[in-house]
């Protein structure tokens, strides 16, 4: 006599197994744990291309949802107690332990809060290894990555729009720069700017970082080391007035400038600007 046993019985998740989605940005997979089916679906849609269920999470963030409500508009506050970082803004509260790489966020079911928390967590993790998130567009051309940094209005979106067909856009807003051996790699990110387009999920060795400035023509001008460090620090995302973190970010910026070509990119808003990006 044979017994018929459904295979699904063996593959059904254990009752206590957390449900969620692993989102891998910059080669760092973080398991976003949520029991809310709709919010999980939103995550999988918003971070499409960065969902990687096959990877082993390097960190975990438990998402605790509360009903939507009006929040005062306020700046984010980031503070540290030992290895635990506390991140607060009107629309969310979160804690993340950098040692165990685990934490939680208490937020309403909107994607912007999660975006902000993820950006901050990644920036904290990256600072430990001398890497960073930077206000910059970036793209890959001929197998090498180029980063175009600048504050709002400097031309990040314009350069992204002007990208030729043989260039792959990594992001039009926030670039992910990570140390790799003796150099650096740029990664695609899902953090979109005005283009509202998620970047490609790939990485490439970083060829150069340019500080954008609109002008009458296209030219690349060398930037001195000290100038480059100052300009880079103005564009790196870091949120905490924590002495260890500030020192790490500063050291990371100096190290980067000493290893990667950094220049001023004066560009006219036309397709010919990309002719200099080779």
């Amino acid at each position: 006599m044979s017994a018929s046993i459904s295979a699904s019985r063996f593959f059904r998740p254990a009752p206590d197994e957390p449900s969620g989605t692993t989102v891998e940005i910059g080669g760092i997979p973080i398991f976003l744990q949520t029991d809310d089916v709709d919010f999980r679906a939103m995550i999988e849609q918003r971070y499409a291309g960065f969902v990687n269920s096959a990877s082993t999470p390097a960190g975990q963030l438990e998402i605790l949802l509360h009903p939507p409500k009006q929040h005062p508009v306020e700046d984010v506050r980031v503070s540290r107690s030992g290895p635990v970082w506390r991140i607060e803004r009107g629309d969310f509260r979160a804690e993340f332990d950098l040692r165990s790489r685990r934490g939680w966020v208490h937020q309403s079911p909107n994607p912007y809060s999660l975006d902000a928390v993820l950006r901050i967590i990644h920036s904290l993790v990256l600072a430990e290894e001398g890497s960073f998130l930077v206000h910059a567009a970036s793209g890959v051309r001929h197998g090498r990555a180029f980063v175009f940094a600048g504050v709002s209005g400097a031309g990040k979106t314009t350069m992204s729009r002007l990208a030729p067909p043989d260039a792959t856009l990594l992001t039009d807003e926030i670039s992910y720069v990570r140390r790799s051996g003796c150099g650096y790699c740029a990664y695609g990110t899902p953090f979109a700017g005005e283009l509202a387009r998620v970047g490609a999920n790939l990485k490439a060795p970083l060829a150069a970082l340019y500080f954008l400035e609109k002008g009458p023509d296209n030219r690349i001008e060398p930037a001195s080391g000290p100038y480059a460090v100052r300009a880079l620090l103005r564009n790196i995302l870091f949120f905490a007035h924590d002495s260890d973190l500030v020192a790490r970010v500063f050291e990371g910026a100096v190290e980067f400038v000493s290893r990667v070509p950094v220049a001023q990119f004066v560009f006219a808003p036309n397709e010919r600007a990309w002719e200099l990006v080779q």
């Binding site: 080391g225 020192a247 100096v254």
Partner: peptide, 10 residues
């Protein structure tokens, strides 16, 4: 860096 001492207040 580049012969210039840069100091950042933490």
């Amino acid at each position: 860096l580049g012969g210039e001492m840069m100091i950042m207040s933490a």
